[in-house]
Amino acid sequence: MTIAAAAYPLDWCHSFDDYAGKLRDWVAGAAGQGADLLVFPEYGAMELASLGGAEVAADLQGALSEVARHAPQVDEVLAGLAAEHGVYILGASGPVFTGKRPVNRAVLYGPQGVIGHQDKQIMTPFERDDWDVTAGRDGLAVFDTPIGRLGVVICYDSEFPLLSRALAEAGVEILLAPSCTETEAGFTRVRVGSMARALENQCVVVQAPLIGTAPWCAGVEENTGRAAIYGPPDIGWPANGVLAEGEMDAPGWTLAQVSRARIRQTRAKGGVLTLQHWPEQSARLSRPIQVITTS
């Protein structure tokens, strides 16, 4: 299959039709290049805050509420585009209110409509302290689709190995890691985490970042990154584990072809077998740690 990762900038939208038109153009662009799976970034939905006007968009809580208000319309547009082009789309994540405080939710769409969603599991300090966005309560989701078994680790989640490990043990072959990072250091953390998850779990990881500036939107004023698709650095894969990557902070799609058969072969007969050998850590850790002191 062909996977497309978006390096996606935020734009001011004067109407919901502006936003829908932008999505149509982006999806058509990736589908026109043969993409089967399209991945949009974390908090890419925040440009919908512009529909509330400048004062709302500049206010942290106002922006979250305004974006959440449009979630049903976004579902309708992206489900329609997935059906029109016969593709699978991980939509840009955004706030959804399931209680008094929002979760950070990414929704997966397919040709038949909405497949399901994944809420971010571990919140960054900014999300906890400034936005008061809460962790999802539904746990992890595995999406068993005709193009493969997919899992989602939103940004910070990709930096914690046990989340991805649980998904890999549930048969996930492709991890989707939409991200939103202000600095190059933040982007690098997600990049390193994503590459490590591909190594540990002998799978493909797709990083799709928010990029560019949006000084009018609270919380996502500056965004840095590059889109990339990673695999395990093993037999039959690129030696550096990078299947494809875009230019830094350059908007557009980055595409790579991925073979599910190669993932299965690597997990069964790779140069190393990190997926199979993972449980051996427990046996080693059950032994006392030796503290060796030197003078």
Rank of each mutant, 00 (worst) to 15 (best):
Y8M: 10
L10W: 04
L38M: 13
L10S: 01
W26E: 11
D59F: 08
G34C: 04
L90F: 06
A58C: 03
A82W: 09
D18F: 03
A45S: 12
G21N: 13
G44Y: 02
D75I: 07
L37D: 10
H70W: 15
D17R: 06
L64D: 06
I89T: 06
A35S: 03
A7D: 08
R24T: 03
L10K: 02
A28V: 10
A57F: 11
L10Y: 03
A68M: 03
Y88S: 02
G52S: 06
E84S: 06
P72A: 09
Y19K: 04
I3R: 05
A83Y: 00
A58V: 05
G52R: 04
V77G: 09
D59Q: 10
L23P: 00
L90K: 01
L60C: 12
R24I: 00
D36G: 15
A28T: 14
F40D: 02
W26I: 01
E55P: 01
E76H: 13
H14V: 08
G29N: 05
Y43E: 04
R69Y: 14
V77L: 13
V77M: 11
A31E: 04
G29M: 02
D11G: 08
A7S: 12
V39Y: 13
A30I: 12
V77Y: 12
A28P: 08
L90N: 09
G32F: 12
Y43W: 13
L38H: 07
A7K: 05
S50Y: 11
L81E: 08
V87I: 02
D17C: 03
A83H: 03
L60I: 15
A31I: 04
L37E: 07
Q73G: 14
A6D: 03
A6H: 10
V39C: 11
L51S: 00
G80I: 00
A68P: 07
Y43Q: 12
A58D: 11
V74L: 09
A57H: 07
A7H: 03
A58M: 12
E47C: 04
S15H: 09
